[in-house]
């Protein structure tokens, strides 16, 4: 009797465990499918001819016909919109890191009166619907000649990206022990040399990741881009303006043009995503 019990219990536990294991794997597969299948379907449409895109029913298998893509690329305004998107995103990247990183460094290395006030200012930006900034800035930009320019839009996107740039660089710099800098000072460096020779090489990958993050924020932003540009539309602004007049295959190719770089960006910064948010929460 006792022997059977002893034999049965581990078996029951094992069954329960393998059932749990199965459920766990099923959940992982299901969520992966939930994320990936819609992207796959968009790619199917992008890699099909315009006729197939409007055709019915669909097979769900791409025909690898590039005429939709060709149509998209040669469509009036698309090339320019793509170029504008890249230009604005690069400017945003430079501005937000150039302005945000020094602030992040100051927050991580110094204690000074007013530090909390600055932190509040940065945190506050996250509690405001930032794309709305485009409305009053449109007026300001017209007055200062920044309307419909890449730099004007990049400024608004920088407001969006700066809180992230500050908090991410803050956590990056906080991860470099102050002792390393102090060691460099005692070894003959002034502040700038120590930063350049010791801190910079160590944070560079992280800075690059947060720069890519800023790029992505700008690359994806729709509302402010649509409000602030007329001639020099970025890709999302261009697409959203033409949504109700453009044919389906143009939308899908445009969607793919936005998604593919994003996939690459996330891949590039994947290691840093969590480190960034871990500290940024505090």
């Amino acid at each position: 009797m006792t022997a059977t019990v002893e034999n049965n219990t581990p078996k029951a536990v094992e069954t329960a465990r393998s059932a749990g294991r199965f459920l766990f794997i099923a959940a992982v597969v299901l969520i992966c499918a939930w994320v990936l299948v819609p992207i796959y379907l968009l790619m199917v449409n992008t890699l099909s001819s315009p006729q197939e895109v409007t055709g019915f029913p669909k097979t769900g298998i791409p025909s690898f016909d590039f005429s939709s893509i060709q149509f998209f690329i040669s469509f009036a305004g698309v090339a320019k919109a793509l170029w504008n998107s890249v230009l604005v995103a690069v400017l945003t990247m430079i501005l937000s890191i150039g302005i945000g990183a020094p602030a992040g460094y100051a927050l991580s290395r110094f204690d000074f009166p007013g530090k909390e006030a600055f932190r509040m200012l940065v945190v506050m930006t996250r509690a405001f619907p930032l794309p709305l900034l485009a409305l009053p800035l449109a007026v300001l930009f017209i007055r200062s000649g920044l309307d419909d320019t890449a730099i004007g839009l990049a400024i608004v996107h920088t407001v969006l990206a700066i809180p992230f740039a500050v908090l991410i660089t803050f956590s990056l710099f906080s991860g470099i022990p102050l002792e390393l800098e102090e060691a460099a000072w005692t070894l003959g460096c002034n502040r700038w040399q120590a930063f350049q020779k010791v801190v910079l090489p160590l944070v560079l990958p992280g800075i690059a990741a947060s720069a890519v993050f800023a790029f992505t924020i700008s690359w994806n932003e729709v509302f402010a881009a649509a409000v602030l540009t007329i001639e020099n539309r970025t890709l999302p602004a261009f697409l959203v303006q033409n949504l109700n007049v453009s044919p389906l295959h143009l939308k899908f190719a445009g969607g793919a043009a936005m998604v593919i770089p994003a996939l690459i960006f996330i891949f590039a910064v994947r290691k840093y995503l969590f480190a960034m948010w871990g500290i940024a929460n505090r």
Binding site: P177, E179, L180, E182, A183, A184, T186, V198, L202
Partner: peptide
């Protein structure tokens, strides 16, 4: 002067 730190502060890069 030269200094030796508690956590060594050997430059990792």
């Amino acid at each position: 002067i030269a200094m030796v730190f508690q956590n060594y502060a050997v430059f990792p890069h």
